[in-house]
Amino acid sequence: MKKTFNRIFNKSSRNLANMVIIATLAPLIGLAACAQPAEETAAPTTATLTSTPTPHKLAALAPGMPGDPGGPAYRARGNINAPVVVTEYMDLRCPFCAIHTNNYAPVLDPLVEAGQVRVDYRVVAVLGPDSERAAAAAVAAGEQGLFYDFVIEAMKRFPTEGKPKWSEAELVEVAKAINISELEPFIVTMQNPEVHAKVRAETIEARANGLEYVPTVLVNGQKLEDSSAQGLLAAVQAATNS
């Protein structure tokens, strides 16, 4: 298994070398992280995993499982028995989340396809009603099996400055771009007050369990503090070899 992982790891490393990294893009966007309230702690920028082996409190929240219609927002992808689980908390209006997600994809995709990693996406709404609407749209896409596709497409559409408003019309355009077959049910779910209430409840639950800012990433329950693509890949390798 170690040789298999190393081969896939090398592929992910090559993907990492060929993409635009966070260090290049971050100055263009002009921010470090999308904090929730202003008084919250700023995002850390050093280290790989927290020094303590104790799982973060967020790790205790119910995981999303691939193919499980009961999983929150149908949000997980990959082998249900994968030895490494990467959990990413994001807000679809957060520019730094967009940078992370776009940079993580070429690193994680080969590992997910090989069954080495399961990714659990937690879309929360920490940046106001527009975030809540976008998160509800992700849930709606998830009901048609396209949660991940929706998140990736949305993250590719960020403006060069500021945060997207994500009007309903814009979210429908994202849905069309990923070929959602039934637009009317998508719109109904996106507008459903119960779905919005669920998004708010999951956001409150995450904050109560220590979510301080987005993006926040866990690798096998431990908080990733160097959340660059390089840091993520190193943490996944360390978790696999542990």
Results as ranks from 00 to 15, higher is better:
Val199Ser: 01
Tyr213Pro: 02
Met155Thr: 05
Val214Lys: 00
Ala206Arg: 04
Val188Ala: 14
Ile187Thr: 14
Pro159Gln: 10
Ala201Ile: 00
Ala177Phe: 03
Glu194Met: 15
Ala201Glu: 14
Ile178Val: 09
Leu171Cys: 02
Ser181Lys: 13
Leu183Phe: 04
Ile187Gln: 14
Glu182Leu: 14
Tyr213Trp: 06
Glu182Tyr: 08
Pro215Asp: 13
Phe186Trp: 15
Arg200Met: 11
Val174Asp: 13
Ala206Val: 08
Pro159Asn: 12
Glu212Asp: 11
Pro185Glu: 09
Glu168Gly: 11
Asn192Glu: 02
Met155Lys: 07
Glu173His: 04
Leu183Cys: 08
Glu184Phe: 07
Leu183Ile: 15
Lys176Ala: 06
Ile178Phe: 12
Lys165Asn: 11
Phe186Val: 00
Asn179Cys: 01
Pro215Leu: 06
Ala154Arg: 01
Tyr213Leu: 07
Glu173Cys: 09
Val195Gly: 02
Asn209Lys: 09
Glu182Lys: 09
Pro164Thr: 13
Pro193Asp: 10
Ser167Met: 00
Lys156Cys: 01
Ser167Asn: 05
Pro164Cys: 05
Leu171His: 01
Ala154Pro: 08
Val195Ser: 04
Phe158Ile: 09
Met190Ile: 02
Arg157Glu: 03
Arg157Asp: 01
Asn179Ser: 11
Thr160Trp: 03
Pro159Met: 13
Ala169Tyr: 01
Pro164Trp: 00
Asn179His: 12
Met155Val: 05
Ile180Tyr: 00
Lys156Gly: 13
Ala177Tyr: 10
Met155His: 07
Ala206Cys: 05
Pro159Thr: 04
Asn192His: 10
Phe186Ala: 06
Ala208Cys: 06
Ser167Gly: 05
Ala197Gln: 15
Asn209Met: 05
Glu161Met: 08
Val172Ile: 15
Ser181Phe: 06
Lys165Val: 14
